[in-house]
Computed example of a mutant assay.
Amino acid sequence: MTQAPLRRLIDLPGIDALEMKALMKPRMADPDERHEFPEIDEAAKAVFGLTPEEAEAIALPDDWDGIDRLEGFDLTDAFEAEGWDVTDSKRKPLRMIRHWALPLALAMRGAAGELPFAPEPGPDEPGDDWGAKMAAEATRFRKR
């Protein structure tokens, strides 16, 4: 059985641009400095339907596992187990993951907020058999 491809947090609208900004302004990644950067709340509201501050105000379910409080690769592994890639192109945790972890966790578990629509890959789009399609295309190319 093949596993569905992971959804990438950085591919959601506005997340990549804020990651780039955080590279230039490292304070932007600090949750204590969030009040200085209203674009964080705007992006979270647009993507998850709630801001990080609204997410913090929500009463967590009794069986909440604290996925949002994990650090480093423990955090990335936990989100990966739930179908989300929260790393950058170098497979490091996103700089701003502290802002996105709780809203994402609440939304993906249906406790609050919402996840953006993600269409299923169609027959002509890369999906589970993408590697096989590429191998077949390479074989056809070599035969020409």
Rank of each mutant, 00 (worst) to 15 (best):
L6Q: 15
L6M: 12
L6Y: 10
R7N: 10
R8D: 04
R8M: 05
I10W: 10
D11I: 06
D11P: 04
P13I: 11
G14L: 07
G14A: 10
G14C: 10
I15E: 02
I15M: 08
A17Y: 02
L18T: 13
L18P: 07
E19T: 00
K21D: 09
L23S: 06
L23C: 09
L23F: 12
M24T: 06
K25R: 14
P26W: 10
P26D: 12
R27T: 09
R27H: 07
R27E: 14
R27C: 01
R27A: 12
R27M: 12
M28T: 07
P31L: 03
E33H: 02
R34C: 05
R34M: 13
R34V: 05
H35M: 05
E36D: 11
P38C: 08
E39P: 01
I40V: 15
I40C: 07
I40F: 10
D41S: 09
D41F: 03
D41C: 08
E42A: 15
E42M: 04
A43I: 15
A43E: 01
A43H: 00
A43G: 03
A44Y: 01
K45G: 02
A46E: 08
A46Y: 01
V47A: 10
V47T: 13
G49N: 04
G49V: 09
P52L: 11
P52G: 11
P52I: 11
E54Y: 07
E56C: 02
I58T: 06
A59P: 00
L60Q: 09
P61E: 14
P61K: 14
P61Q: 14
D63I: 01
D63W: 00
D63H: 05
W64S: 06
W64K: 00
D65M: 11
D65H: 09
D65N: 14
G66Y: 05
D68E: 15
G72V: 03
G72L: 04
F73K: 08
D74M: 01
L75G: 04
L75K: 12
T76Y: 04
T76C: 11
T76V: 07
D77K: 14
A78N: 03
E80T: 12
A81L: 08
E82M: 10
G83V: 04
W84N: 07
W84R: 04
W84F: 10
D85C: 08
D85P: 04
T87Y: 05
D88A: 10
D88C: 06
D88M: 07
K90M: 11
R91L: 08
K92H: 14
K92V: 13
K92W: 12
P93W: 08
R95S: 14
M96K: 02
I97G: 01
R98K: 15
H99I: 01
H99Q: 05
A101F: 00
A101H: 00
A101D: 06
L102C: 02
L102H: 04
P103Y: 06
P103S: 08
L104R: 08
L104D: 01
A105C: 07
L106S: 07
A107D: 00
M108T: 08
R109K: 13
R109I: 01
R109S: 11
G110M: 11
E114D: 06
L115M: 11
L115F: 02
